[in-house]
Write a protein that binds this DNA or RNA. Structure first.
Length: 255
DNA sequence: ATGGCTTGAGTGTCAAGA
């Protein structure tokens, strides 16, 4: 089973790239973030023609998450149960016995801001929900844009980013709290190139200079991690004309 | 250097992203 995550920064703009990527990589599920469209504008027909169904949780202009998948999905859930949120940031479904969750964690804007407090509260709610999901679903994958670079090696210039948004200690602790539930960071199950990132700023030739952060992640429950064969960041779409600022992250699981 | 791009909204130029 191949699963992946990609913050597309507008599905309308990126749809041709998404269709090409699906064709080239043939994932069983692709989690999307920042679709930036309401369900009415979602390209169900184009995806269907490419062999993919979709579950979407969208809104105008901002946020929006989806899971593109092949086969039959059950138990579609939108939002974190019990957590009131205007922003569409979570969708989950079960595919062939594997529960898949697509998340777009709040950015937080600036350490100490209202948005930062929202981000940390959001993480707390996510962890509380996933603790229950893990107990219920041994095969559980959590994919998305976490807006956290977990360690200094996930940052192109750790000193410049020290305690800044995406890298602050409370954010990293929130990420580690997910690992404490039993999740494994699939990317770190394997030897990886140094300076591996999943996001590069559009400005300042960030990609060409590889000035990036690793903030897009695939977290796997113990049962899934045990059968994970590989996890890679695909930089190819970041090189295209009009790219998303994020690259897809892909994991291959046994079975 | 708090800038530097890109998007969606919607015609002016913002807010938001990370």
């Amino acid at each position: 089973m191949k699963i992946a995550t990609w913050n597309v920064n507008s599905l309308k703009v990126r749809l041709p790239q998404v269709l090409d990527w699906l064709g080239a990589n043939q994932p069983d599920a692709l989690c999307l973030q920042e679709t930036k469209t309401e369900d009415a504008g979602f390209p169900f027909a184009e995806l269907e023609a490419a062999g993919y169904r979709a579950a979407h949780h969208g809104q105008k202009t901002y946020n929006g998450v989806a899971i593109l998948y092949r086969g039959e999905a059950t138990e579609v859930v939108r939002d974190i149960p019990g957590f009131a949120d205007e922003q569409k940031r979570v969708i989950a479904l079960t595919l062939d016995g594997t529960r898949i969750v697509s998340v777009y964690v709040p950015n937080g804007q600036e350490v100490g801001s209202d948005k930062y407090a929202y981000k940390l509260a959001w993480f707390t709610a996510l962890a509380a929900w996933l603790r229950e999901e893990l107990a219920r679903c041994p095969r559980l994958a959590l994919l998305g844009d976490f807006n956290v670079a977990p360690e200094d090696r996930d940052v192109h210039d750790a000193e410049a980013w020290r305690e800044r948004i995406l890298c602050s200690t409370p954010e990293r602790e929130a990420f580690r709290a997910l690992l404490a539930l039993g999740f494994r960071d699939a990317f770190r199950l394997f030897e990886q190139p140094e300076r591996s990132f999943s996001w590069w700023d559009y400005r300042n030739l960030g990609f060409r200079r590889n000035q990036g952060l690793r903030i897009d992640h695939v977290l796997l429950s113990p049962a899934l991690a045990a059968g994970c064969r590989r996890c890679t960041i695909d930089k190819a779409p970041r090189r295209l004309e009009r790219p998303s600022d994020h690259a897809p992250v892909l994991a291959e699981l046994d079975g």
